[in-house]
Design a protein around this nucleic acid. Structure first.
Lengths: 347, 347
DNA sequence: TTGAAAGCGTTACCAG
DNA sequence: CTGGTAACGCTTTCAA
């Protein structure tokens, strides 16, 4: 009694397979009575339309690919994925995930084989720089390519990006306008391929350079190795500075949050002793009261997905390429500059 | 020149479509020279085997469903998903996600329509209680059903679960053995359907009851409303207690982390003034040095996926149902009980 | 409103 | 090792 096919359903309902098919996919073409009967029998026989067959017949795959740097478990990737999913799933699409597309081996394998060729209806590329050659390769699959936080729009049918550079420029400016002079930017080493992280660094540098003369700044980028312990590396680098800075500008909240907590253990309290600003507004940023630049990767995923749906549907996009700004979220880790006071007076 | 089909490739390569097909899926059956030529031409013509057609032909869908409570963005869900993905993707499967399967509307819709019927090769059910009727419904799709942290193994072909109750029993025992007497368990209200959260509460209660007489305990479960602000609710409930507890036992790290940080602002410092233990070992637990019970949802996802693959392959599982224990991770938020001292002596 | 039949792109059997 | 061909389960004209 298991796995009845469309013929059995048709027979049991006393109709043709055409009618069974229509009862599911174009119910309006079938009389209410027939349809009800068909659906009822189908349910009894555990029957349902096969997506594979539908896909084959229609030429669509009802599947989209999502390429990402690193793991889906990172905050940013999860949020973008969830945003895309929230649009694509109800529209009948599954997401085929390709993680770690930023490692040389995976890149080579992926772009060499192009396993998604003819097997997805659209491709999302989240947050990594694919080089011109790879964009070309991707285009050969002849489906819409949608970028999220890609460094360039070149070769993409649509993109959504936050302006990382401008966002970090704003963050830095905020610290400068609070009167801080000694500003450090702890930065984990750039990935092998340029990513949005680098744009942020540029934003910091540009803001400092622009304000340099007027504000007599002492600023620096403090580069630490990538890896799981990057925040601890930054911490120790910070502590080993001759003068502890009066402001710290962070690449991301995942850098800022551990710093706030652990610097506290070494007697450096924010906002009393220094200001610090993060980037992302990721979980726990509000818990520690972190002032930060907010971005909305979930929303970007939704935007990207909506564009993809239109593109799949052969519609033309009014604005294929969108840039959104990060928002300054003022909380409790920033304060106007105050001349440092002898430690024993602080009690 | 776009989207060549298998016939064009065959013609261009001077072979039959059978050979083209075999060159991709059973290369060992084709001579090296022929294969190389076919692959080369296929690449030139942007051709690749269609998964939809393969799926149709083979009767498999190369798709699995994953049902989850709430959103994929939660730490637990993301980890389980990533674990499943890490096994299923290389094996050629996509994951079709069904979120919020715990809300009445979604449940009704999902189990009524059973949209995955005949459309997935396996179903993963993560961390929610489906009632007996729903298990029955699910079984009607005639594919393996694998549970992750389901409250019962009934109706599942395989399950992996952590023993939430035992884990929390252990956590509670640890606090008791440190000499704490006044222990509070802040708990967000149970979801509409029973989940692993409830097991943890039971573990706490049982541990307290078991130790009650011998240790003269004063324990309580402090229930607060669910929702985004559950940690703040717990915080204020805690602060409004007549006597502040000397130990806090938390449902999960997401409760413990904000509490540690925010209680600090109100002058309650751990481990000086109270011990606190979390559950999960989620991100930032180590940053704040939280003593907690570790679970490994990523690993559970992998285990579940491996079971699924075997089941799909009609193999029998030696141990279909596995239970793993949470591990006590001792860090810095627990200490032996000390009689509270007058506040002014603490400076 | 319904039915018959062709065809979507594979795979697998059977020949050669 | 390679080719011909039927069949997988559906959708979609075209006719009735």
């Amino acid at each position: 009694m298991s796995k009845a096919d469309i013929y059995e359903v048709a027979k049991a309902a006393g109709v043709s397979i055409s009618t069974v098919s229509r009862s599911f996919t174009r119910p309006e073409l079938v009389s209410a009575k027939t349809r009800r009967k068909v659906l009822e029998i189908a349910d009894k026989l555990d029957f349902n339309i096969s997506r594979s067959a539908t896909a084959l017949k229609s030429g669509q795959t009802y599947r989209v690919a999502m390429l990402m740097n690193e793991e889906i478990t990172s905050w940013f990737n999860t949020q973008v994925f969830a945003g895309i999913e929230s649009i694509m799933h109800p529209a009948g699409y599954d997401i085929s995930l390709f993680q770690h597309i930023d490692t040389p081996e995976n890149r080579h394998e992926f772009f060499g084989e192009l396993p998604i060729r003819r097997n997805v209806d659209a491709v999302f590329v989240a947050s990594f720089a694919i080089d011109p050659h790879e964009v070309e390769q991707l285009q050969r699959i002849h489906v819409p390519i949608i970028g999220i936080n890609t460094p360039s729009t070149e070769g993409f049918d649509a993109t959504v990006s936050i302006d990382d550079e401008k966002g970090m420029y704003t963050a830095t400016q905020h610290l400068i306008s609070l009167g801080h002079h000694h500003i450090v930017y702890p930065s984990s080493e750039a990935a092998s391929i340029s990513s949005s992280i680098d744009s942020r660094t540029r934003g910091f540098i540009r803001a400092c350079e622009d304000a340099q003369e007027k504000h007599d700044l002492d600023w620096q980028v403090l580069t630490v190795p990538r890896g799981a312990a990057f925040a601890d590396s930054a911490l120790s680098a910070l502590l080993s500075l001759d003068d502890f800075p009066d402001a710290i500008c962070c690449q991301m909240d995942m850098m800022a949050i551990p710093l706030v907590i652990k610097l506290g253990r070494y007697g450096h309290l924010t906002p009393r002793d220094y200001s610090i600003i993060g980037f992302d507004d990721s979980p726990n940023a509000d818990t520690i009261n972190l002032t930060t630049m907010r971005q909305d990767p979930y929303g970007m995923g939704r935007t990207a997905a909506n564009k993809a749906l239109k593109l799949i549907n052969n519609e033309t996009l009014a604005t294929p390429h969108e840039i959104v700004d990060a928002q300054l979220v003022l909380r409790g880790t920033d304060a106007p500059y105050q001349r440092p006071q002898p430690a024993d007076l602080l009690q």
